[in-house]
Amino acid sequence: MPQGGRWTPRTGTSSRTTSSYGEVLEQLRTIPSEHFGELSEPATPSTTSPDPLGPIREQVAATIVLRATRDAELVDRTKVGVVFTLPYASGEEFLRTIAEELEHATLLRQEPYLFILALPVTMGLSPLLICGSSEDLSDRAGTLVKSKFLNRVQRYELRNGRWGALIRDLCSTTYDEAALWDAVRKAAREPMDPLIPPPGSRSISQILDQARARLQRITPQQAYEELQDTALMWPVVLVDIRPEAQRRQFGSITGALVVERNVLEWRFDPRCAYRLPIADRYDLRVIVFCQESYTSSLAAASLHDLGLLNATDMIGGYAAWKEAGLPDEVEVSSTAPPTDGRLSVPVEA
């Protein structure tokens, strides 16, 4: 057990005062050592003699549990709390004793509970134990603690329904106490019913239908004819938004602009410094396609949000283009990259 200096609990980090029981332990130090030995430096355990501190430790743990349950918060029918004790030898064992008392507490037997027990050490590793009425509660709280303390969690494990860890410099800032409270509160929230969506949310099917309702979608044949039409008053570009892996696997249309989905808006916003040279006007006809025309519908609707109201997508995507027997090479725009088959590009003299 790492040793450290005295830790003083901070206030103002939660809606309730964090339970701190160092003063109880301090009172035990005043009991003459002949009764049970020095608490801060217990005698080396013997295999033949009982632990003289056992009854005292259990009595203090019971007091801690009583006060912790009294001061606990109620979150979605689960009692939650954060308990700190002062650093002293056998501290990890004392945390386990408190956990056992929590598991047998009469006040907690009939309802869910989740508590974080910690023994802050100002310089070094502090043991922390999460115990709850179910392993899922402890695991959720442990996951949140790991996320909040990141590289300060040195070791951790989930065993027998408890989540334990060693955390460096615990409570060295006011953030730590607030973070622990936040972890137990959020972990105690009851899981949402997956069949009841939150207000204002939309399913992906609804999002897709609403996006397509904004578009005048065209078939691959119509797209090909538009690309060949010289009478149109606006430029037309065919844009492949598929990732490279899909282009390699299924093939591509030589001459189409390759603008992957994650940068599409930046490349076609006329107001953006990172736009393509061709994207300098709002009447540009952008025909977007993906592999099967699901992502492309959402992408085209996003271009409408930018003001490119002529944008649309190709029904059925590249798969439908191939099925229609359309050519693998089309003439689209001078901004298209050169094909791989060219021996040289006449740019330099």
Rank of each mutant, 00 (worst) to 15 (best):
V258Q: 08
Q206F: 00
D182Y: 02
D139G: 06
C290M: 02
P32K: 07
S344N: 03
M192F: 04
V145W: 03
G54A: 14
T219Y: 09
P243T: 00
W321E: 08
N262S: 13
L25S: 11
Y175A: 14
L298R: 12
L180D: 12
M192D: 07
Y318P: 08
A72Q: 12
G255R: 04
Q59G: 14
S252F: 13
R155D: 03
S205I: 10
I196F: 05
Q246S: 09
V288N: 01
M1E: 09
P235L: 03
G4N: 05
D71C: 09
I204P: 03
F149L: 06
T143G: 15
S252K: 08
S90H: 14
T47I: 11
T69V: 15
A141V: 08
I278D: 05
Q216I: 13
P327G: 02
L66I: 04
P87M: 01
W7F: 09
R70P: 06
D193V: 01
T143S: 15
T11Y: 00
I130Q: 04
Y175T: 13
V82F: 04
G91A: 12
Q154M: 10
L108R: 01
C272H: 15
S20C: 13
V24R: 14
G200S: 04
S20H: 14
V65D: 04
F115L: 06
R202F: 04
S49F: 11
I253K: 02
S40H: 12
S252C: 05
E92D: 15
P9H: 06
D136V: 15
S302V: 06
S333N: 09
G200H: 00
V184Q: 08
D229W: 02
D176Q: 07
A61D: 01
V24Q: 13
D280R: 06
R16Q: 13
A231P: 00
E26K: 14
D193C: 06
T97H: 06
R275V: 05
I56E: 11
L303I: 10
Q210A: 13
E103I: 07
R271L: 11
L166T: 15
A188K: 04
R77P: 00
E93K: 04
D71P: 05
W321H: 06
C131D: 10
R162Y: 04
F115E: 07
A62V: 02
P338H: 07
Q206A: 13
F250H: 12
E26H: 15
V145N: 03
W7G: 00
A320D: 12
S147K: 13
W181A: 12
E292T: 15
T254M: 07
L114D: 07
P220Q: 08
